[in-house]
């Protein structure tokens, strides 16, 4: 492992020394004209961001304090925190949707991520037909989620679906076919299987890109030092993949929290709202129940949860960028 240490020192020494490395705080940067000079260039994007992202967010938070059916002819009535009280104490579906969202995020961080990494490690080896396998595993990722939902719903069909046919052929169960989407205890996991099928390939591509950045010299050095496959992976590959792992994790969290299409397409949140998630419940309350106050209260809760999970990453990544200035 001596070589590893030496290489790292060499890499650090190669940083240009001509300019003194010093940190600038925000005030200094604005004062030096960095921010003001860039403002005209930022303005169009900033305006679009304010109109299409910030303003709707503020509007959603404001509406969560009102009772409103969504019709212009119907007045918006200020009710304070009544929608939140209803949501937390009386809504029979809200806590189910919170639980499902949390379970979905946790499982997403474990299963498709691990699967993507394993596939990437396997397809990073010099195999025959490697590119073909990479394409095959990646293809589900480019399909529209609603198309994936239709496909899997058909496969789960208790009368004609492929799983039912297999179970009948192998005489598994009572012969009535597979009823995964019909069981309130199983439905959410049945939908999650479709999610794994779709996103594992995407994760694989990200990990493959990360693996191209792992120094071959370091791997060879580790092997010369007598490290086995696991030790190389644990001590060389995995640390080098750290930035990729963080990106995959953050993207997975963001995608998981806003999961919508697959559930709409496969169960619609059912049976008996057992596969309901926060994003879909917000939509349901607003656009199907015509209760925009409650719907926006769910959206606000979702916003807060997302910020709590994503802001630490943003701070971390911004800090990294600042350090490099």
């Amino acid at each position: 492992m001596t070589k590893l240490t030496e290489t790292r020192f060499t890499a650090q020494a190669s940083v240009p020394q001509g300019r003194p490395q010093r940190k600038k705080n925000l005030v200094q940067r604005i004062g030096k004209g960095g921010f003001i000079a860039s403002l005209p260039f930022l303005a169009p994007a900033l305006a679009a961001y304010v109109v299409f992202v910030i303003a709707p967010m503020i509007s959603a938070v404001r509406l969560s304090l009102y009772q409103w059916s969504g019709y212009n002819t119907d007045p918006q009535v200020f009710v304070g925190f009544k929608n939140y009280i209803r949501l937390f104490t009386q809504d029979p579906v809200f806590w189910t949707s919170v639980q499902n969202t949390v379970v979905w995020v946790i499982l997403s961080l474990i299963i498709p991520t691990t699967l993507g990494l394993v596939m990437a490690l396997a397809l990073n080896q010099p195999l025959v037909g490697r590119n073909l396998f990479r394409s095959v595993f990646y293809i589900p990722g480019v399909l529209a989620p609603i198309a994936v939902a239709n496909m899997w719903r058909w496969m789960y069909n208790p009368n004609y679906g492929v799983f039912s046919e297999i179970s009948k052929t192998l005489h598994i169960g009572d012969g009535s076919g597979v009823t995964f989407l019909s069981d309130p205890k199983v439905a959410i996991y049945a939908v999650f299987a479709a999610f794994v099928w779709q996103v594992a390939g995407l994760n694989m591509v990200l990990f493959l890109a990360g693996l191209q950045g792992v120094s071959k010299e370091l791997v060879e050095s580790a092997r010369l030092d007598g490290a086995n496959n696991w030790q190389v992976f644990r001590n060389v590959t995995l640390p080098a993949l750290r930035p990729t792992v963080v990106i995959v994790m953050v993207l997975t969290i963001v995608h998981s929290i806003k999961v919508f299409d697959l559930i709409v397409g496969m169960t619609g949140g059912g049976p008996a709202q057992s596969s309901q998630v926060l994003a879909l419940w917000s939509y349901t309350q607003s656009f199907l129940n015509h209760d925009f106050g409650l719907g926006n209260a769910v959206a606000t809760v979702l916003l807060v949860v997302t910020l709590v999970l994503v802001v630490p990453y943003l701070i971390w990544s911004t800090k990294g960028a600042d350090d490099q200035r």
Binding site: N157, P158, V178, T179, L181, A187, P271
Partner: peptide
């Protein structure tokens, strides 16, 4: 009811 009724729609 038909088995698995809750997982299919009315057309099916």
């Amino acid at each position: 009811f038909n088995p698995g009724f809750i997982g299919i729609n009315n057309d099916e």
